[in-house]
Computed example of a mutant assay.
Amino acid sequence: MRDVELRVVHAFTWPAMHAPRGASPLGPPTGGLREAVEHLLAEAVERARTAAPGAEVSHAVITGEALTVLAAQSRSAQLIVVGHRGSGRFRELLLGSTAVHLSAHARCPVMVVRGRPEPAGPVVVAVDGSPQGQAAVAFAFAEAALRGADLLALHAWSTWADHGEHRFGDPVDPVDLIGDADRLRAEEERVLVEALSGHPERYPELTVRTSLVHGRTRPALIEASGSAQLMAVGARGRGGFTGMLLGSVSQAVLHHAHCPVTVVRSDL
């Protein structure tokens, strides 16, 4: 879709026992670690060419730890794609450490492939109205246009989101709560509209739908991912701790979404 080269990269680290680079004299000539890695990459390249005939595919074996190698590769990439977990020690984990850390440190968007994407489903983008989330919105519009898919912009809100004065103290009149809910809904609807402003005009052929969900953000996004072909989220939004590189919502969908997730940092 992007009409660019696909580069298949393997970060190679020697075992702690310092196994020999080549084959053992007691074994077959292709039995060395490096030969095994080259065979692994050759299979991956062939799989890529079968999936996308005519695509330009290259490969590289780079000595180093996976996160360091891939973070360096991201500086000259449009997109990095990784699986949700790899061959690390804890195979039962929902999400591998490389996917988590790369999503926080890469210099380009990171797509974590997980779940079973719905081919005819929309591209879903999480909208929170923060400046940090605008990069994910822009990415989602461009990605939906590339895929010829609909775009679903989802914004979840809570009655208590910005009205902490009702959480403690004197009982609150139910009429006041209803009024607060109505005002909050109107305000959150404005946040959603403003976050999308300007993008539909740049993609007039794109079908854009919005979803204003009254409820918690993480469950709403995970549920929406069940009928999506891709979900886009910012690395972090307006909640949580400002020093965090990856917010709790982003981490939740990386762990539990039913489709691939692309994390887009705002400082790229």
Rank of each mutant, 00 (worst) to 15 (best):
L151V: 14
A144N: 03
E188Y: 05
S97I: 02
G133L: 07
A135N: 04
T159P: 10
L212K: 08
H166A: 11
W14D: 00
G115N: 10
D150T: 12
T210G: 15
R190H: 09
G83S: 11
L177A: 06
T50I: 01
E46I: 11
L154H: 02
E38S: 01
E5C: 04
T13E: 02
I222K: 05
S197L: 09
A257P: 15
L212Y: 13
M1W: 02
M1P: 00
S130Q: 08
L151D: 12
D170K: 07
A135P: 05
G148D: 06
E188F: 15
H39V: 15
P260H: 11
G115E: 03
S97Q: 05
D3P: 07
H256A: 12
P219A: 12
F141Y: 00
E143K: 05
L177G: 04
A235L: 13
R91H: 01
R218H: 15
E38N: 03
L184D: 08
A138I: 15
A106P: 10
G96D: 04
S211A: 03
T13D: 00
A145S: 12
G83L: 13
A126I: 01
D3H: 14
G129W: 04
F139Y: 11
A145F: 01
G198H: 10
W14Q: 02
T98P: 08
E5Y: 02
V208A: 07
R209Y: 04
Q132D: 14
A104R: 13
D180W: 00
G164I: 15
C259N: 10
D3L: 10
R7A: 06
P174R: 02
G129E: 04
L152V: 12
F90Y: 05
H199M: 00
L6Q: 13
T50D: 07
E35N: 06
M231Y: 13
G226Y: 00
E205L: 03
L206Q: 11
A23G: 00
A195I: 06
H163F: 01
L79M: 05
T50E: 10
E38R: 09
H214P: 12
Q132N: 08
G247D: 14
A77H: 15
R236K: 14
V124N: 12
S76T: 07
E189F: 00
R116M: 15
T30W: 13
V82Q: 04
H59D: 09
L177R: 06
G133D: 01
R107Q: 12
P109K: 07
E187L: 04
T13R: 05
E189P: 02
H214K: 14
L79K: 02
Q229L: 03
L70M: 14
G237D: 08
A138P: 10
V193I: 15
R75L: 03
P28W: 08
A153D: 06
S24C: 05
T262E: 01
V82E: 06
E56G: 00
H166T: 08
E65I: 13
A235G: 09
P260R: 07
A161D: 11
P204G: 09
